[in-house]
Amino acid sequence: MDQLLQTLNAILNSAISPQTAALAIAAIGLNIHFGYTGLLNLGQAGFMLIGAYGFAISIIGGLPIILAIIIALVAALIFALILGIPTLKLRGDYLAIVTLSAAEIVRMIGRSSILTDITGGSNGLTGNQYRSPFTSLSFFGDGHITVGPWSYDATGSNGWWFIATAWFVVGVLCLFVWAIMRSPWGRVLRGIREDEDAVRSLGKNVYSYKMQALILGGVIGAVAGIVYILPASLQADSMGRSMTYFIFTALLLGGAATVFGPVLGAIVFFAIRLFVQGIAGQFIPSSIMNGQQTEQFAWIIIGITLMLVVIFRPQGILGNKKELSFDVK
């Protein structure tokens, strides 16, 4: 029973943690790519990494936080241009392979020993190297606040200030996505997702729209990177290919091409993991499955969940099957 409560508690904590918010933001960005436009971006973690490095390095270099954020977003914009120019005129698989590769390149460069002075190499950068300008913006005071089942420091890392900001960003982005996707702009994207040639025949510049979508989703990915590292540290390997896969899993769980799908998906993603881990930890004797193995077991379940969702409920929890266009050309 204790363990059950513990599991429940862990799930509740993860549901509002800034890391969950970061995953949700990354999934919102990917939703613009994949859900609405049909762009198969397999390098969303690369955009996160670009944003994270852009932000952290700028802060460490002594720039004000606003400028650091702008640099991070512009870096992601340039990254999107670099990826989009050679691939957006080609078939979808090429974008997939190039984004996947480029994200890996970013990670490899980030963790390379040559750049240790700037990026911290494979050890990365610790949070307190870049966190303080953000912490000092807090108007939450120094105390300890308890809301319902949640109890955190007001401002300290992983505290309410981080949580509130992260979810505020999530909220703003949801509103933004809702606004642009109900607009004629969003309509063009949905048209492209289904049939580029049809949209082209109507005089819309498909290439330009795809590029806009790629940039927008990528820049949101960079925001996710910043949110992700603020309460934690920046390590290149934590934003590798697995991260992209997890973002995809979250997005598809919640429902691609829906406004709240990515958010719900991110929460459910962590909940499933913790739930499986907790249950396995409690009910399966450790002689059969030790602590480490319960964690791996949870990941196996995540992988299988992704398979099952895509096969049996490709529209996810919130999606509408009639509107989902899954195939990318």
Binding site: I180, S183, A198, L202, K204, L216, S325
Partner: peptide
């Protein structure tokens, strides 16, 4: 190439010219 997962009226609207809302910033 009817866009089958858009409604008929959305298909029609997509054909129109000069919709300022097709610009991201205006949208």
């Amino acid at each position: 190439k009817a866009l089958s997962k858009l409604t008929v009226i959305e298909n029609m609207r997509l054909g129109a010219k000069d919709q300022p809302g097709e610009n991201l910033f205006v949208s």
